[in-house]
């Protein structure tokens, strides 16, 4: 009997420069040190069954990364949490874990929304209304092309369909806080850094992005937005 666990992982500033691939390896080693009875994939090169819901861009912190672990024998979730947290390097911690039924879909197949917190400078002489106007003008376009250098070459796509929702808040007299929700789709997603770059390029905005944080990943359905740790299927 295998056991499926979904956990929320925090990636703090100490480890924000770790790439996604290295993060997976770091978590795997922590689980091995904790003696977690990990289940392995089948095949010539069996791999431990650890699956992250969505890769986090390098350099960004997060309070809500989600990971699915499959164990070959069940562990009480609280015990799992305690054992693994004792083996994670500074900056990484499991905040919560939930046991889900075997029949639940794979976490990465259902998570479809990412919420980011972005801190943006207001340049001298420009207020929050100036920003709101520029921002709304930017998002009213039908098409904003992002070019991304990938290993397979240059990928170009429209970022507008990926914008789900946003909220603006004046942070202080010289900065603005943006809560930005972006869709994660099987075809891909746009990074908040790419959105902000496109915004700056379109509007000529001079303020710097000084803060970029992923608050969490969610599941949007007709019945609302759910956290992976409470959603039911």
């Amino acid at each position: 009997m295998t056991q499926k666990l979904w956990a929320r992982l925090i990636k703090g500033p100490e480890v924000r420069f770790i790439s996604h691939l290295d993060l997976v390896g770091t978590v795997e080693k922590a689980l091995r040190r904790a003696r977690v009875p990990l289940a392995f994939s089948q095949g010539f090169n069996p791999q431990p069954r650890i699956a992250f819901a969505a890769a986090l861009p390098v350099g960004m912190t997060s309070s809500g990364e989600y990971v699915e672990f499959t164990l070959r024998e069940p562990w009480p979730p609280e015990f799992f949490l305690k054992q693994v947290n004792g083996q994670l390097p500074p900056g990484l911690a499991l905040a919560a874990v939930r046991e889900v039924p075997e029949k639940y879909p794979a976490l990465m197949a259902v998570v479809n929304l990412a919420r980011y917190q972005i801190g943006l400078e207001l340049p001298a002489g420009r207020g929050s209304e100036d920003f709101s106007r520029a921002w709304e003008g930017f998002l009213q376009q039908e098409e904003v092309t992002v070019s991304r250098q990938t290993r397979k070459g240059l990928r170009r796509f429209n970022l507008i369909p990926y914008i789900y929702h946003y909220r603006l808040q004046e942070d202080s007299s010289d900065s603005i806080a943006i809560t930005l929700e972006l869709r994660l789709t099987p075809q891909g997603s746009v990074r908040p850094g790419e959105v902000m770059e496109a915004f700056r390029a379109y509007t000529g905005w001079e303020g710097r992005v000084f803060f970029l944080h992923r608050e969490g990943l969610y599941i949007v359905r007709d019945d609302g937005i759910h956290s992976p740790l409470t959603v039911k299927f």
Binding site: V15, F17, K29, A30, P89, P90
Partner: peptide, 9 residues
């Protein structure tokens, strides 16, 4: 950049 962190396990 993780070459220069010094906070490894």
């Amino acid at each position: 950049p993780t070459r220069y962190l010094g906070t490894e396990w």
